[in-house]
Each structure stands twice: as structure tokens, then as C-alpha cells.
Design a protein around this nucleic acid. Structure first.
Lengths: 234, 234
DNA sequence: CCGAGAGAGACTGAATACGATCTACAGTTG
DNA sequence: CAACTGTAGATCGTATTCAGTCTCTCTCGG
């Protein structure tokens, strides 16, 4: 079996009766997939996972149903489930669609942004400037974008964007150290420009700026992915 | 119990080993929700559903996990699951996002459309003209739009649109008979206009036309929903 | 040497059984 | 009288068990 080592799972009975075992299993598997701990095409064996987590197969099955619905794994009936890898084409699609949606949500956010939100954005932008660690930078970057998305007050669109982010997450993390992927200075400039548009109340400008920003990020990621495919392919 | 009458379910063992019981249960429940057979807030009791479908609770639970991920039901731990009703605000969001995505996909489809696809579209448009039955018209309308979406060759975007359509489906069906909702003539004209743009290779024109078309449809639906809320509310 | 078929092992799918949790209602207490 | 506690019934969550399906290998016939 090509199973990957997973850290143990423990339910936290103190913190709620609101989450069930399947939720914890789903969280753990999702994190393992998004972090890259489970490789593309890694096989998910129900019994092994159950043993690993110290639970029966039933909650494992439920967790896998959910991950399948989230698009993170492929599970055919009567066959081993596998971690769904994304082709570069899919990653590009993902970012194109996300750029579109996030641009729209930004436009929508403009009339709903308060002075406090703008200040929060400036603060978030400043906070990420000195950060050297990739993972930390990514977390702060996500927080920055989340401020805008939240302001749009569009739960539907927000859920869509989060879904797309979730599916691409593994590649962002795996490749964030790659040549030309992590560009804090350039991204910072784009963030500042976005804030300017938002502060000025220029919805269309903000929309275009965000759409370009996200698309640019996606293009960098795909470009690096191509080099990875080239070098590992031969 | 406020359970609604559901038609029986039967697995079809001849047609595949590729689908499991949970899939059939999910399909049936999805259809019941989308058709309006199960009202907003209708309670889903695992044991009752299991008895109704003639299966155990395990596949019912798995089906419910999936429907929850699809956004069709709400399920808190240790509590009865309920059919998730959409507020008019959510429906509006849904159509706004869908309009955006479908517009983008249309734009993307333009350079990929063949002569045959254009002809297929003209044929689909002609086919729906004489149809009086609402349900049948809706099916043909979906088929028309599907031709364009398929041509975009963007699986990610296509899945998003389908997801949004699925969630709004119940209201489309419930309200398609409502005043000002079903507008075959107007929709037909819009369809013709879209075909013109596509045939002319005008991607931007097609994008705008589709976006407006979808948004218009959503606005009609929401407007009727408001009258429903008014009349039933007092 | 190659391909079709049988059989073993592994794995998934579903039912049953049991334990945990929630909700509603009755009784009690301040 | 209001708020709280306790109990019964309903419902959910999980483990265990058995049945069905798939895959791989080995054999046998051509």
C-alpha cells in the first residue's frame, strides 16, 4: 500500500457535542490532502484509515463521501478511493473562475465597505510585508482577501470561492517555494493598488485589479507547475 | 412527523455495479427536494427514510452527507436534518453568481464553437418555441444552455454552474407557473440574440447577452417570490 | 507462448445491534 | 408562579458482522 503517514486524530469531547467523528476524520484527511502529505493518486483504504484513526469504517466512509463531494478525492463504487490530482489545465480553470468570482465579489463589496474595513485591510497589508516564511505569508494573504470577501455579503459567492481555494490549496502549498511563484513584493504592490481602488470607491477598478491579481497568481502557479512536470517527467 | 410522501425506490442491479444504495437514495431525495415534494424545512428522519426506501440507515446517512455538501439540506449533529430553504436574497445571489459564471463560460465557448454546435443551438431554440408545458420548456431550456456550457470546455466552471442550478431548481419548478416568471417569447428572443452573437464570433457580446439573460431570469423569479411571500405572509 | 477461466485474498457495501445524545414533558423547588 | 431538574421516548452515532464485488494470480487448454 502506498499509504502516507498521518498524524493521529483525537476527538475533543469537551469542546462540543456538535461535531461527530466523521467531521474530525474529514478535517484530518482534508488537511492531509491540502498539505500534500497525501500525494496525487494516493490510495485511501477504508480499513487502514479506520485503524489509523482508531474508529470504525462507518465514519470514515461518511468523511470520504464528503471529501468526494468537495472534489478532493475520487471514489468509484467497490474500488479504492484515490486523492484527486489536478492537471495544470484544471488548476488554470480553477484560478480563472476564482478570479472572475472574486473580482465580482470585490466590486460588490465596495458600497458595503466601512472605514474600519479599509483600515483593517491596510493593517493586514502592512502585517504581511516583513514576513519571510511562505506558509505564514500565505495565511496572511488569505486573511487579507477574506476581509474583502466578507464585506461583499454574498454567502453563495463566498462559498464558491472557498471551494475553489480549497481544491487548489495543495498546489499552492507544494509549489509556494518554487521559482517565480512566491512574489511578496509584487503581490504587495497589487494589494496596495486594490486598497486604493476600494478606498476611492472605484468598484470597477477594484474588480479589475482583483481579477488580474488572482489570475496573475494562477498563471505563476501553472507556469511553475509546468517546470515541475518537465523536470520530473524526464 | 411532517414527512412527505415519497415514491418508492428500487435499485437496478442489472444496469451496473457502479452505483451504490446511497447514490440511489441521494438521487431520490435530491429529486424530492428539487421538485418541491419536500417543502422548505421538511424534516428528514433517518429511520423513517430507511424504512421508506427499504434500506438500513447507513446508506441514508451517506446520502444525507452528500446532500448536505451539495447545500440542499442542513444537518446538525444529533438533530433532525431539514430541507434547506433559500431566502429570496440567497436566490438573488445564486442567480447573480450564475449569470457571471455562465457569461464567462459563454465568452470562453466562442472560439471553441463549431458550425455544428451553432446549428444544434438553432435547432434547440426552434424546438422549444411551440412547447406550452412548463416542465418540458424548462428541460429544453436547460438543454439549450447546456450546449453552450459544454462548448466552453471548462469542467470546473461547468460544475459550479450546475451546482448553482441545482440549488435553485426547486424554486424554478415551484414558481414557473407564476405571474411573470415563465416568459417563453422574451426568453426565445434572448436566445436568438445569443445565437447571433455566437455565430458572429462576438465573444464579448455573447457574454453580456447571456449574463443579462440569466440575471433577468433570476430577477423575474425573485420578483414572483416576493409576491408569494406577501400573499402567504398575511 | 499466449489467452481464457477458476479461485483466493482483499476490499467495499449494507444490515444489525448497541450506546450516546437530544427533546419534551412532568414534577419539584425556591 | 417561574425556573429548574429528572426521566422517558425518540433519534442519532458508531462498532460489529456478514455479504457482495473486484483484482490478481495461477492453471490449463490451445
Amino acid at each position: 500500500m502506498r499509504s502516507t503517514d498521518l498524524s493521529g486524530i483525537k476527538r475533543d469531547p469537551t469542546l462540543s457535542g456538535r461535531r461527530i467523528t466523521a467531521d474530525y476524520v474529514a478535517d484530518d484527511l482534508r488537511e492531509a490532502i491540502q498539505s500534500g502529505a497525501l500525494e496525487d493518486g494516493a490510495v485511501l483504504n477504508q480499513a487502514s484509515l479506520a485503524t489509523h484513526f482508531g474508529v470504525s469504517r462507518v465514519p470514515v466512509r461518511e468523511a470520504m463521501r464528503q471529501l468526494q463531494a468537495e472534489g478532493l478525492i475520487d471514489a468509484e463504487a467497490h474500488q479504492l478511493a484515490v486523492v484527486r490530482g489536478l492537471s495544470l489545465e484544471r488548476i488554470a480553470e480553477l484560478y480563472d473562475n476564482r478570479a472572475l468570482l472574486e473580482g465580482y465579489l470585490t466590486q460588490r463589496a465596495v458600497p458595503r465597505l466601512t472605514e474600519a474595513s479599509i483600515e483593517e485591510l491596510r493593517e493586514a497589508e502592512r502585517a504581511m510585508r516583513p514576513v519571510a516564511d511562505h506558509a505564514e505569508w500565505l495565511a496572511l494573504n488569505a486573511a487579507f482577501h477574506r476581509i474583502i470577501l466578507r464585506a461583499a455579503r454574498d454567502e453563495t459567492g463566498l462559498a464558491l470561492v472557498n471551494q475553489l481555494k480549497s481544491r487548489a490549496e495543495r498546489y499552492v502549498r507544494m509549489w509556494s517555494g518554487g521559482e517565480g511563484v512566491h512574489r511578496p513584493v509584487e503581490a504587495g504592490q497589487e494589494h496596495v493598488a486594490i486598497i486604493e481602488f476600494l478606498a476611492a470607491g472605484d468598484a470597477e477598478g477594484a474588480r479589475v485589479a482583483v481579477e488580474r491579481h488572482i489570475r496573475h497568481t494562477g498563471e505563476r502557479l501553472v507556469a511553475y507547475g509546468q517546470t515541475v512536470a518537465r523536470t520530473s517527467g524526464e
